[in-house]
Design a protein around this nucleic acid. Structure first.
Lengths: 220, 220
DNA sequence: CCTGAACCGTAACGTACGGTACGGACTTTC
DNA sequence: GAAAGTCCGTACCGTACGTTACGGTTCAGG
């Protein structure tokens, strides 16, 4: 699955339309939920009539924006071959760092805020879209790694989903909720690397087998 | 502005005012972010003029509601005496279960959604209040427990804050963000108890000393 | 050129909602 | 028992914003 258009409506977006959605993204980051159609039209240098013609209504525009952003963040999958203890640890660290970068990026914060706001109102269509492209997307990419680690005798667990959720918690901790609620928390490259390493170490302490890291004395 | 109480905690509120705030809470749970002053007045059987007289403006009403709810959830602190391994484990489990109950309650979900929405807009005053009464309140109550455990030789860690955040992540995992984004996830009593136990076990595996649980072989 | 489609800029419309004003009813106080 | 205070119900105002409509411009095709 190298390339997936992923647009549910399958409507190939023109370059102009993508530019409009990028304008929406930039406005979301700047203005937050105070996002008006007029502001979008002005920022994108297009008419409101065009916005409504292309995206139907405000909700359609937001939905298209979320999916557009999601299509830009598809990270590459890992290669299942040559999975020794070091490669597994590296894969975990890379996933953790990638996830921390995503959830601490202004774009992700703005998008998740929009999703949460929408979920609060009527049928949370946008919320589920954000969820599918965030939490569940990372899970879908992550769980094969865990299972490969188990097959290689490096990890020991029963339920993949539960195990992933533990890793998710060790990585994210309180970061996402704090950022969503406006905590002026900033994650630099160094902090992300350190957090990813710590989370990976803790995860391997909980789920790693003796074969995983012979240097350690503790074996669950 | 002749009137600006700005009560830091839920004090000096008359029973009638508390009833109004309870009406706001119920409306938040039902209607979500679509919360209007008119709806509050109708639900609370009071006039809008009274609302503005008592709470200043819409923001003041929301702020008072958040603080009112927070004042109702203050859980009891633990007693530092008689802290052996079993008591520590019980304390951790109780904190974990309490926290899971809170974040999965409809009221907390609604309140956090409001806070996130507000944080997205202008200066996130409400967001920081929710944060202070949620994430930071539990941390403030939790960290003395961890330090008592360390003094008793049951836990081994350097930084209390970091250690608490790990516990926080092990307990909450992906639950809060999923609920905020509208995932139809439900946590029953049994699941909460099981999750609290699992998180506590994992935490003690990471940070417990040999003295904590003599039956274990792993010592960090 | 002419025509029509696509699109920009902007004016206009309808509604929802925050905030204010006013009349009436009930309670307290002197 | 009247004046003052409190509060409910509702009508009202101003504004913001989603949505629509319309005139003007560019450009491709004939």
């Amino acid at each position: 699955m190298t390339r997936a258009p992923a647009e549910t409506q399958g409507e190939a977006l023109t370059a102009r339309q993508q530019a409009v959605l990028d304008a929406v993204l930039s406005l979301m980051v700047e203005k937050g939920s105070g996002l008006t159609m007029t502001a979008v039209a002005r920022r994108a240098s297009c008419s409101k009539e065009t916005l409504y013609k292309w995206f139907g209504d405000r909700d359609g525009l937001l939905t298209a924006t979320v999916q557009w952003q999601a299509s830009k963040v598809r990270a590459g999958n890992f290669d299942r071959q040559t999975l020794d203890a070091g490669a597994l640890r590296e894969s975990l660290k890379r996933f953790a760092a990638n996830w921390l970068e995503v959830i601490s990026s202004p774009t992700s914060i703005a998008l998740n805020r929009i999703g949460v706001s929408q979920a609060a109102a009527r049928d949370g269509n946008l919320g589920s879209i954000v969820l599918a492209n965030g939490r569940f997307a990372i899970g879908k990419r992550m769980m094969p790694v865990l299972e490969a680690g188990r097959e290689a005798g490096l990890l020991d667990f029963d339920d993949t989903e539960t195990t992933f959720r533990t890793f998710f918690g060790l990585v994210g901790r309180d970061i996402q909720i704090r950022l969503l609620l406006g905590d002026p928390l900033t994650l630099g490259k160094a902090e992300i690397a350190r957090d990813a390493e710590r989370a990976t170490d803790q995860f391997l302490t909980l789920y790693g087998t003796a074969a995983n890291d012979p240097g350690r004395t503790n074996n669950a």
